[in-house]
């Protein structure tokens, strides 16, 4: 009797797909160690120059700025998403629940271009916010929000919000309500019960959400490209510039590889951070 019927049938296509993604990653890795031949699309011999070039202040600064924007975005997103996730999990009104869920999730499926374009209209010098403030007589001259870190982070928070809400809701919905009831019965008010019971128990979700938001922000391209407009650079925009403006693919590859290593380091750190937290939450 075959204990694993159809195994090959099920796994073979997946193996092909895995080979395709592994090949793409291997291609980048290989290019990262090749010399750039100006004016040619084909790379030169093996070298470590691309990685040494990353140490130049110009590029190092982009790295620092990227990490700063990612951190800022992830933390602001957490603060904004938590109340929404909490309301989503706790409301018993089915229609309200569906509304909150769809509102929170729809942006996820719109794609970066549509969302970023919307923010251009909101943040632009003749955009929504400036026009409203001007109309109310609060300002005379438009506040510069496009091409600023503020503008980029605002739009990025909007981009990462759905995934944060999903991850926090998942964590919150799996916390037994009896813990909170027990805290209340022992004399904790709603705020204390939240701070002493729900918040600590939701920490694994918080860490998972923040690290995912970090990775997503790191991955974002359209938002820093369109709202940053070259004034606010991130690794993603730099990779694109290097690739499509100067055709320096080896350096773009080296930058990607380093960025990937950074992402994995952050995710690994988050995983380590979750471990003790999950033990607290475990029954």
């Amino acid at each position: 009797m075959n204990k694993r019927p159809f195994l090959a049938l099920f796994v073979a296509p997946a193996t092909l797909a895995a080979i395709a993604s592994a090949a793409a990653l291997a291609a980048i890795l290989q290019y990262a160690f090749r010399a750039y031949v100006p004016g040619s699309l084909n790379p030169g011999g093996l070298t470590l120059d691309n990685f040494f070039a990353l140490l130049r202040p110009l590029y190092a600064q982009v790295f620092i700025q990227t990490v700063w924007i990612c951190l800022l975005t992830a933390l602001i997103t957490l603060v904004v998403a938590y109340p929404l996730a909490f309301a989503l999990v706790r409301t018993r009104n089915v229609a309200l629940k569906s509304f909150l869920l769809i509102t929170a999730v729809t942006p996820l499926f719109l794609g970066e271009v549509v969302r970023t374009y919307s923010w251009i209209i909101v943040l632009g010098n003749t955009g929504f916010i400036n026009s409203v403030l001007k109309g109310l007589g609060i300002i005379d001259r438009p506040i510069q929000m496009m091409f600023t870190t503020f503008g980029v982070v605002t739009a990025l928070v909007h981009v990462t919000l759905p995934v944060m809400v999903i991850m926090l809701s998942a964590a919150l919905s799996h916390i037994d309500r009896d813990y909170e009831k027990a805290a209340t019965s022992l004399g904790a008010g709603p705020v204390k019960a939240f701070l002493t019971v729900m918040l600590p128990l939701s920490m694994p979700g918080v860490v998972a959400g923040v690290s995912t938001a970090f990775a997503w922000t790191f991955s974002a391209f359209a938002t820093p490209q369109m709202i940053g407009g070259g004034k606010v650079s991130m690794i993603s925009t730099l990779v694109y510039q290097l690739g499509f403006a100067s055709f320096n693919f080896p350096f773009a590859a080296a930058l990607s590889v380093t960025g990937l290593a950074l992402t994995f380091a952050v995710l690994a750190m988050a995983k380590q951070a979750i471990k003790p937290l999950e033990k607290i939450g475990a029954h």
Binding site: S21, A24, F218, S236, Y240, S256
Partner: peptide, 20 residues
């Protein structure tokens, strides 16, 4: 490998397939 695209930036994956 199959779930890695969740954490690998899309620009990296795009660049990878382009180079490939």
């Amino acid at each position: 490998v199959l779930t890695s695209p969740l954490v690998i930036p899309h620009f990296t994956i795009g660049l990878g397939f382009l180079i490939l």
